[in-house]
C-alpha cells in the first residue's frame, strides 16, 4: 500500500485518538480520587454536544464559541451531580455505584431523546470546511483543532497534576486518601472539583467534536466504553498512560479499517486492548 495513504490514515488516527484520550482522562481523574467508575461519563459529553446543537439552532452559535458556555455549564452540572448523587455512593457497594450511574445513563438518554428526538445530528463549525495540506497529506481544520486543543488540554491538565498545589492534592488523595486528609486537604471539596473538572472536560470534548461525530441520544454508552478501554489500557489511574492509550486506540482504529476493514477491522482496537490485558495487564505505562 502507498506510504502516503498509510501516513494519511495515521494522521486521522492521531486526531481521533486525541479525543479518546481526552474522554478517558475524565474517567481516570474520577477513578483516581474516588475509586469509582461513572457509567454515565459519555452521556455528559452527549449533553454538551446537544447543548451546542441547541445553541446553534436557536442562536446560530458556532460550536467553538459554544464551548465558552458548555464548559462552565458542564462544570456546574458536574458539581451538582457530585453533590446530590455521586457523593452519596462513595462508600457504598460497587453495585450501587453501577446502578446509580447506569440510572443516570437512562435518565440522560431519555431526556435527550424527548428533547431532541432520535435523529442523527451534527453541527459544522468555522473550521469544518477548511483544509490544511502538507504535500500529499491533508487534514481538516476541525480535526486539527480537536487534536491541538484536545492535546493541549491534556497537556495542561497533566501540568496541573504534576506542578500545582491542586494537582498535588489530587495525587495525594489518589495515593492515600486518609493521609491526604491528615495533610489538611478537604478531600470532599477536591473530589467534587475533580469530578466537575472531568465533566467540564467533556464539555470541551463535546464542543470540539460536534462537527466530527454525529450525535444521537444513545451515543453516551459507546463513548463510555471507549473511555473505559483507554482508562484500562493506560494503566488504571495513570494520567499520562490514558493520553497515550487514546492515541494508540485512534491509530489502531485507523489502521484496522485501512488494512483489514469491515467488522474485523473494527475489532482491531478491541483486539489490541485484549492483547494488552493479556501481556501487560498493568497497562501501557503501568498502574498509578
Amino acid at each position: 500500500m502507498d506510504i502516503t495513504i498509510i501516513a494519511q490514515a495515521l494522521i486521522q488516527g492521531l486526531m481521533l485518538g486525541a479525543i479518546y484520550g481526552l474522554i478517558g482522562l475524565g474517567i481516570t481523574m474520577v477513578y483516581a480520587i474516588t475509586g469509582l467508575l461513572n457509567f454515565a461519563h459519555g452521556d455528559f459529553m452527549a449533553i454538551a454536544m446537544y447543548l451546542c446543537l441547541a445553541l446553534f439552532t436557536h442562536f446560530n452559535m458556532d460550536p467553538y464559541l459554544s464551548s465558552l458556555i458548555a464548559v462552565p455549564a458542564l462544570f456546574v452540572l458536574g458539581l451538582m451531580v457530585y453533590h446530590f448523587l455521586f457523593r452519596r455512593v462513595l462508600k457504598a457497594e460497587l453495585l450501587m455505584v453501577v446502578q446509580l450511574t447506569l440510572g443516570m445513563v437512562f435518565i440522560i438518554e431519555s431526556s435527550l431523546l424527548l428533547t431532541f428526538t432520535a435523529d442523527y445530528e451534527s453541527v459544522p463549525n468555522i473550521l469544518h470546511a477548511v483544509r490544511f495540506s502538507l504535500g500529499p497529506l491533508s487534514v481538516s481544520g476541525s480535526y486539527l483543532a480537536t487534536f491541538l486543543v484536545g492535546g493541549g488540554a491534556g497537556a495542561a491538565l497533566y501540568w496541573v497534576l504534576q506542578k500545582t498545589d491542586l494537582g498535588r492534592q489530587i495525587r495525594a488523595i489518589s495515593q492515600n486518601k486518609d493521609a491526604a486528609t491528615l495533610m489538611g486537604i478537604n478531600t470532599t471539596r477536591i473530589q467534587m472539583i475533580v469530578f466537575a473538572l472531568a465533566i467540564a472536560l467533556l464539555g470541551l470534548s463535546g464542543s470540539l467534536t460536534t462537527s466530527i461525530l454525529t450525535m444521537e441520544p444513545y451515543m453516551g454508552l459507546e463513548l463510555t466504553l471507549f473511555a473505559f478501554i483507554v482508562f484500562v489500557m493506560g494503566g488504571v489511574g495513570n494520567f499520562l498512560g490514558t493520553l497515550v492509550a487514546g492515541y494508540l486506540l485512534g491509530i489502531a482504529d485507523a489502521m484496522g479499517s485501512l488494512f483489514i476493514g469491515g467488522h474485523l477491522g473494527a475489532m482491531v482496537p478491541y483486539g489490541l486492548f485484549v492483547l494488552l490485558l493479556l501481556f501487560r495487564p498493568q497497562g501501557i505505562l503501568g498502574a498509578k
Binding site: 486521522q12 481521533l16 461525530l213 479499517s257
Partner: peptide, 14 residues
Amino acid sequence: PFNWKSKDLSPIVL
C-alpha cells in the same frame, strides 16, 4: 465493507 459505527471513514475513502 466497512464498520458502519466507525468514527472516521478516512481510511475507507483513502
